[in-house]
């Protein structure tokens, strides 16, 4: 039969009693800690071994000295760095402005696709065609069509800035992807949530705004961030239009002596740009954990 603790006179308030972990618990904590340490050591050792092996294999190869001078020249790197960095600033601006435009457009398209009822048919149709079209077109093709085609039309009052039309192409393509991500999120919210909200008297729009979207957006945050990382890299594709972004700047730098180090510099800079986003994604995903999916325990 169960044994309660010796009954105390008054109902005790747990919070005002000091508590110190028992010996058993301290020992458990020590064990957990030692296991954490052990895994840290194992991962460090395996990283060093694998990394060392790769470096050893590469530097041992016959062509390495030549590759080293043409791709990994320190002097060339220092020399080309300012120009590449200046180009990167354009990538950053494009990526930020496009990022905002993509989210707004993508969300709008997703909501259009989830509208029910016959009056909304034209909107649904538009959104569906838009997504099918721009998701299906290769981004590079879209860039060339818009970047080279539209300015050639010489439409009065329409900018001929290549960076602008490059950005438009990126927005068109990415918003189609992002719309699908949002739509998946919206549809993953359990119907009972809508029912509960409608039962409280909220309209369809209010339900979407206050109940469905907050859950949907939280749930699709990791894939969205993934698309954002992808956008950061793909902003480099506007180099094909001859706009001086980081990649184009690197190409210009290589032209004088066929030393390809500037490409490596640009690559490293792009990686530095995407790493913070990647870590942020991990952080968001971890914070949400399984609570992201909702549900009671």
């Amino acid at each position: 039969m169960p044994l309660g603790p010796a009954p105390s006179a008054s109902p005790p308030d747990p919070s005002d009693e000091p508590w110190s972990p028992s010996q058993t618990e301290l020992e458990r904590r020590a064990f957990r800690q030692s296991r954490t340490k052990r895994s840290a050591v194992i991962s460090a050792v395996s990283t060093i071994v694998v990394g060392g092996l790769v470096i050893w294999l590469v530097t041992r190869s016959a062509g390495w000295p030549r590759v080293q001078t043409t791709f990994f020249s320190w002097d060339k790197a220092v020399e080309s760095f300012p120009a590449v960095l200046k180009g990167l600033w354009l990538n950053i601006r494009i990526m930020l402005i496009c990022g905002v435009a993509i989210v707004v457009l993508g969300l709008t398209l997703a909501i259009m696709r989830t509208l029910r009822g016959p009056i909304f048919f034209p909107l649904r149709l538009f959104a569906t065609v838009y997504v099918d079209l721009f998701r299906g077109l290769p981004l590079l093709l879209l860039l060339l069509l818009l970047g080279l085609g539209v300015p050639a039309l010489r439409l009065p009052g329409v900018t001929i800035s290549l960076a602008f039309w490059g950005g438009v192409a990126i927005v068109l393509s990415y918003s189609a992807y992002v719309a699908e991500v949002f739509r998946a999120g919206i549809e993953s919210v359990h119907p009972s949530q809508r029912a509960a909200s409608r039962a409280l008297g909220l309209s369809h729009g209010q339900t979407l705004r206050h109940v469905v979207l907050p859950q949907a957006v939280r749930r699709v945050m990791p894939p969205l961030m993934n698309d954002f990382v992808s956008l950061q890299k793909d902003s480099g594709l506007i180099a094909v239009l001859g706009v001086t972004d980081a990649i184009q700047a690197a190409r210009i730098e290589t032209a004088s002596d066929f030393n390809y180090t500037p490409y490596v510099v640009a690559g490293v800079l792009f990686i530095c740009l995407t790493i913070p986003t990647a870590r942020l994604t991990d952080h968001i995903a971890k914070k949400q954990g399984w609570h992201g999916a909702g549900g009671t325990l």
Binding site: M1, G4, P7, P11
Partner: peptide, 29 residues
């Protein structure tokens, strides 16, 4: 049940055979 445990604010205030805990509880709570 062979025994009943009365939980209050995270503590077992009273435990024992149902006749005792439910029939003749010792604690005011």
């Amino acid at each position: 049940a062979d025994s009943v445990c009365f939980l209050d604010a995270g503590r077992i205030l009273e435990a024992g055979p149902p006749a005792e805990v439910l029939g003749d509880p010792q604690q005011e709570r």
